[in-house]
Nucleic acid binder design. Structure first.
Lengths: 173, 173, 173, 173
DNA sequence: AATGAATGAGGGTTCATTCAT
DNA sequence: AATGAATGAACCCTCATTCAT
């Protein structure tokens, strides 16, 4: 990965996240990256290739977040970590996560598969804690954190910390 | 509102919801509506005008759903109705709701304001039921609404009815 | 000529003179005239027909100006009247004359033929006054008044009255 | 300035001069230049940019003509050169001059400022020759220049050389 | 006579992509 | 690896014109 390649990815990430995929032209990306337009196609084939590169490059980050939670042996701690996930996101990665949500809707890219291990781990935790419907409880938690993340990324005025406190109380954490 | 005007709105709704706003060309809309492209501009001024027309036309539907809930005097019943809202959406209006979510991300159109009356009504209900943090509880419900609607529209395999049952139990409804 | 027909002609005259023929759309004309766009075509066939109507309608005015000069028996008086022509134009007819000049260049509509009687009369006057090259003198006068008119219509800061005085002195009028 | 850039300018000059600015589509320009339409916008930004490029490119030519006259120390010679200016225009530059006149009317682009140095030089010459109203005399010469150029460009059958002889006699040159 | 919905062709412009250098 | 000239298709939109009412 050359220096210019990274510049391109960074620029594309910023613009895709801010304006959306279709609304961002390759020429804007090239300009922001300080690179000739042709170079984008030399390195990434086409605009979709550029998008894929961003997604793959960032999929690691999701995995990192999830792995840390999934490996937690204590069920209560695991649920707690899940709930706190939204506030543990690096400020630097903000654009990346925003892009994830944007793409989920703009291009119907589904990132649910990547969450499956987390879903299973959560279900397992609820099972250990003898909840009646561990699978559903896991889904509900994921619904909540998706909602919270989404609110944060859109800059809504939801008080995220209070919300997390409330959830922790509900799950007796 | 002439017949062709409605055809255009319908076509645009379908395409915007399926492909997104930027990815849908006015010529595609015209073709699907069986209408000349120019007519779109005669009636709606420009592509944004077309979008606004769809949104305004559909804002009524949201109001209908919300009003019915907000008017409910019994707090428990109000919360119950809210939780069940996602399954009460007309199959016909599916595209409209999908469009709402897509736009929220693609164009950062915020539909939160429209939900505020519901938020207040919910907070009030929780207050009557003497919940500790009625405002936060209301927000949490809305988070769930957003999450579950989003799941449904994206065609996730989450069992919505089971989820509703779970929540009803949680809120002792 | 109905009232609406006149409204259309008036509007077209104003807009063609201000913006030019090609830059003025029939819809703008209809709007300014307070008339449906279709009516223009009902009455004038097409956009060119509208233009022709304006030109024919106004050709009379040129004739009126010229006839008054051509009929003058006294050669000195005839030349004097010619030179003073530009300042004798009605303020109301300003748009019409501006349009004439605009069209001469935009569409290469030639109005020289209409000036031929004046040219002949001038040549004749100079002949009577025993100028050496009466034809050329006539052409030169016409060149001058075309230049002066053009300056006036374009709103140049040329002092037209002084210029006319100068010309009168040169021709000992 | 690449080869294709020049081709575009040349084609645009020809077409703008022949048909006018608004009546000439960028696609016609591209076709005549043997170039893709998009290239026009890559190089000149938009249609107006193309026009500006032509005007700037040609402003040099006007300057060349004028400078030669303005620098003339002998007042009689200066006036003589001015009067002969219209016939000293290169046949090649014909389209450029025609465009100047067309634009003056179609777009109300004013090229008077460019003539100001010439006006001052002429006024000065007439002052040296002790004419009564040197400023006005200068303006009159410019009026003649404009009129005769206009006649030539429109293909009138006026004998320009005879007219020049007449004027030279009038100014005793 | 008059409207305004409707059209199809074309307007200027942007786009993703290719290619010679 | 990198540039930037060049392309052709598509974009949104406006135009002159027609037609049913």
């Amino acid at each position: 990965m050359t220096e210019k390649q990274e510049k391109i990815l960074q620029a594309a990430l910023i613009l895709f996240a801010k304006e959306g995929f279709h609304a961002t032209s390759t020429s804007k990306v090239a300009k922001l990256a300080g690179v000739s337009e042709g170079l984008i196609f030399r390195h990434f084939g086409n605009k979709d290739g550029l998008l894929q590169a961003i997604l793959e490059f960032g999929a690691e980050k999701l995995k990192d977040l999830v792995v840390d939670i999934v490996m937690e042996p204590d069920p209560k701690e695991l649920i707690k970590k899940t709930i706190q996930m939204p506030v543990n996101v690096d400020k630097e990665d903000f654009d990346f996560w925003k892009l994830q949500f944007k793409l989920k809707w703009e291009l119907e890219v589904n990132s649910d598969k990547k969450m499956e291990p987390l879903h299973m781990a959560l279900a397992n935790a609820f099972r250990k804690l003898e909840y009646e419907s561990p699978e559903l409880e896991a889904s509900l938690i994921l619904l909540y954190i998706e909602g919270i993340s989404s609110s944060m990324l859109k800059g809504s005025n939801l008080n995220v910390n209070d919300m997390i406190q409330l959830l922790m109380k509900k799950y007796e954490l």
